[in-house]
Amino acid sequence: MAAFFAASHILIVAGKGGVGKTTVGASLGVASARSGLDTLLVELEGHSTLGRSFGHEHLPYEDLDLTDDDPTTVEAGGRLRARRITPDDALVDYLTGHGLQRISGRLTENGTIDVVATAAPGIRDLLALGKIRQITAETGAPDLIIVDAPASGHALTFLRAATGLAEAGAEGPVKEQADLVAAMLADERQARVMLVTLPEETPVSELIETAFSLEDDVGIALAPLVVNSVTPSIPGLESELKALDKSLKKKSPTLDHARSRAAHHRLRQEATQRSEIERLTTELPLPRIELPRLVRAGLGRADISALADALQSQIDELDARGLLGDES
């Protein structure tokens, strides 16, 4: 279990909007901390709901320690922290760290950095990634940093920032930073991407495209795929339905019609989901984690805790089947 999480220092969770990427990221964080690791959850700018998973509307730029909220983590000797990283804050940190603090205020104040960032694509993303890299190099660095990446179209842009900037002819400090970040992303002991999807057509197609682009353009290693919100099958449903349908008439009680309709709906939904998962597996032969759809799906701690348990058992199962490689 801990071996899976310790396989790289950074785990970037990415996926199309609406697939539950943030919820999966938060659950991964909890599962990792429960396995005894010092874990840092990072949200980037935007309207991330990561903080809400832990009862905070917004995460601060400094670490927020969540360890004591979870007895299992305390027992395991793990630690869970969460924070936000924004490009503007990261820029000031970066310039200060390079002896350029005098100009940092001016650049952000007069909007210069906005225009440069627009003209030199990826500077903001590079700054955020550079900040994450810097955290891994600090003393007291967490064992694992889990990053809630931007929604997938943007996730690619985000991860391509470093190579893109180098090609765009950046020089000086930016070039140095771009090289360091590109090297970090290409090293699977440093960083991996975990792609999240739903068992539905559009998110699956998008995941497949994203996965190939990530390998080709960024050269980043892929962690197991996560298929979120899979309708769990109910043993015996099909045979009970068959028996019911045989005796079902127009005049049968409303309740029996309801039973039949409900069961047909679920079975069709399961079949559609299976065929999407099958397509995913055929086109992208990677280990896969399936998370069940929760009846009362919310954003609260209890939901995160339940999903963390599901993740844990799935990872253990992949490990037992030897699908996680030589990470231990």
Binding site: L244, H257, A258, R259, A263, H265, R266, V295
Partner: peptide
């Protein structure tokens, strides 16, 4: 989807799978 009823008072012990599914759907 609406399956034609609003709630399920008791589960039929002879049809555990059907009623588990139905009650889940109604709850959702």
């Amino acid at each position: 989807p609406d399956v034609g009823i609003g709630s399920l008072d008791t589960l039929d012990a002879d049809r555990p799978a059907l009623d588990r599914n139905l009650s889940e759907m109604l709850e959702m």
